[in-house]
């Protein structure tokens, strides 16, 4: 599996969440994802980008075009150096929220993609990686 192309974007303020959505959309369109898959990926990106800004205190999004044999996919990596998530299991549960959302952010985003990984340590930040295969 290799990364054919990639781009990094800052996630510092609310407006960056909007720009991140638009960037993910244009990559998904370029790769020829169906409209439903584009929408799922952009929605997942919106949830995760908001988490990075609001809970992670800001960070970055890396967008990568993956090629695995004949298969192509889009990988999104959200990294922050915030407080981290003490209990990832609980955070993934629907309805769990520490903030203003519905608590569907992480768990919801996971359902909208094909692969989902989260690494987090209290005090050391959080890294969420998702992949949507075409």
């Amino acid at each position: 599996m290799r990364v054919r192309k990639d781009e990094s974007r800052p996630l510092r303020a609310e407006d960056d969440v909007v720009r991140a959505r638009q960037a993910v959309r244009s990559w998904a369109v370029e790769m020829g994802f169906s409209l439903v898959d584009q929408t799922k990926l952009v929605t997942a990106a919106s949830e995760l980008a908001r988490n990075t800004v609001v809970y992670g205190g800001g960070g970055t999004l890396r967008i990568e075009l993956l090629e695995d044999g004949a298969r192509k996919g889009l990988r999104l990596v959200f990294v922050d150096e915030g407080a981290g998530i003490p209990d990832v299991e609980t955070a993934l549960r629907d309805g769990y929220t520490t903030g203003t959302g519905l608590g569907l952010g992480l768990g919801g985003a996971k359902r909208l993609v094909n692969e989902f990984a989260i690494e987090s340590r209290p005090g050391a930040g959080t890294r969420v990686t998702v992949v949507k295969w075409k």
């Binding site: 929408t39 919801g108 985003a109 359902r111």
Partner: peptide, 14 residues
């Protein structure tokens, strides 16, 4: 609401 948005919303759990 666009159909793709509706499909995504339900999958999101909303």
């Amino acid at each position: 609401m666009q159909p793709a948005v509706a499909i995504t919303l339900v999958e999101l759990g909303l």
